[in-house]
Design a protein around this nucleic acid. Structure first.
Length: 261
DNA sequence: ATGCCTAAGCCCCTTAGA
C-alpha cells in the first residue's frame, strides 16, 4: 500500500500535473495540501476520472486539504480542537481500507508557516502545533494503524536543509518549531523518510526564488509519521523528485511510503 | 537589507507563501 503527501500549491493551477502524477506513480492514498479552492470549486470530476474518490476541506484563496483514495473513503473530521475561532482549513482526517480490508486512519495536515517570526503568525504556528500534539496523542491511544502526514512546515534538523545559515531566522527552523516537532515524534511516531534514509540530503521543497531547484538548494518539511501499528509494516519511502523539475510544477515534491499488507 | 517566483482574489496590485 502506497500513501503519499503532496503540497500541490493550488489544485486548479496544478490539475494537469496532479493527474499526470497520479497516473504515473499510482498512490493508493494521496494527501494534498494548499488546494487553494473553496469546497464547491474542488475538481472532483477530474479526480474521479483519474480513478480516485476524495474528501476535502477547502477555503477561499489559500490553505485547503484533501485526501484521495483508490478505494472508498470515510470522512472522519475537519479541523483540530482547541481554537473554535480558527477558520483556516488545515486538517482533514479519514479512514480507508488496505487490500486486506484492514482500516488505516489518515490524518492530513497543512501546518502554519509561521513567518515572520517573532510575531502573531509564529504564535499561531506554535499554538497549532500544541493542538496537533493533543490530537496526535488521542490518535495513538486508539492503538490502530495511523498515518499523520502533510506539510509540517518544520525543518527538523540542520541535516534537513541545504543551507541552514541562509534560513537561520526562519520560522521553519526555530528551536521552538523543532522542539514541538520532536515532542510530537517522541509520543511514539515514526518519521518514515528518515527511518528509510537515515542520512544525506532528502529534500521535499525547493523555493521558486533564487534558483532553488537549479541549485538543488532545498529542504525537508513534508513528513509522514506512522503509528507503531504501521511502523513495522514500513518497507520503503521516497520523494518523487522528478516531477518537481517539470513545467508548472508545485514548489513541493510528493513524498511517499510503502506499507506491507 | 531586499528581492528573488508563483497562485489567487480584492484581479494589473495585494496577500500569502517558505
Amino acid at each position: 500500500m502506497k500513501i503519499a503527501t503532496y503540497n500541490v500549491n493550488g489544485i486548479r493551477a496544478r490539475l494537469e500535473r496532479l493527474v499526470e502524477w497520479l497516473n504515473e506513480t499510482q498512490p493508493d492514498v494521496a494527501c494534498l495540501q494548499e488546494i487553494k479552492c473553496q469546497d464547491d470549486g474542488f475538481p472532483i470530476k477530474d479526480i474521479e476520472a483519474a480513478g480516485y474518490s476524495a474528501v476535502w476541506h477547502g477555503q477561499k484563496g489559500f490553505n485547503g486539504v484533501a485526501i484521495l483514495s483508490k478505494t472508498p473513503i470515510t470522512h472522519i473530521r475537519n479541523g483540530l480542537d482547541g481554537e473554535p475561532e480558527d477558520e483556516h482549513a488545515r486538517y482533514i482526517e479519514a479512514e480507508v481500507a488496505d487490500a486486506a480490508g484492514r482500516v488505516v486512519r489518515i490524518g492530513n495536515l497543512y501546518l502554519p508557516n509561521g513567518n515572520p517570526q517573532p510575531g502573531p503568525k509564529f504564535d499561531y504556528k506554535l499554538r497549532w502545533m500544541e493542538r496537533l500534539r493533543v490530537h496526535a496523542a488521542a490518535l495513538l491511544a486508539l492503538e490502530i494503524p495511523v498515518v499523520l502526514c502533510g506539510d509540517y512546515n518544520v525543518i527538523p534538523t540542520d541535516a534537513d536543509i541545504a543551507n541552514p545559515a541562509a534560513m537561520a531566522d526562519d520560522a521553519l527552523m526555530q528551536p521552538e518549531s523543532r522542539a514541538a516537532f520532536r515532542r510530537l515524534c517522541a509520543q511514539g511516531w515514526c518519521d518514515a523518510l528518515r527511518q528509510i534514509h537515515p542520512t544525506g540530503p532528502l529534500w521535499t521543497f525547493w523555493d521558486y526564488q533564487a534558483g532553488g531547484w537549479q541549485r538543488d538548494a532545498g529542504f525537508r518539511i513534508d513528513h509522514l509519521l506512522l503509528s507503531p501499528e504501521l511502523a513495522d509494516r514500513l518497507v520503503d519511502a521516497g520523494v518523487d523528485k522528478d516531477h518537481r523539475g517539470r513545467e508548472k510544477a508545485s514548489d513541493h515534491a510528493a513524498t511517499w511510503v510503502k506499507l506491507t499488507i
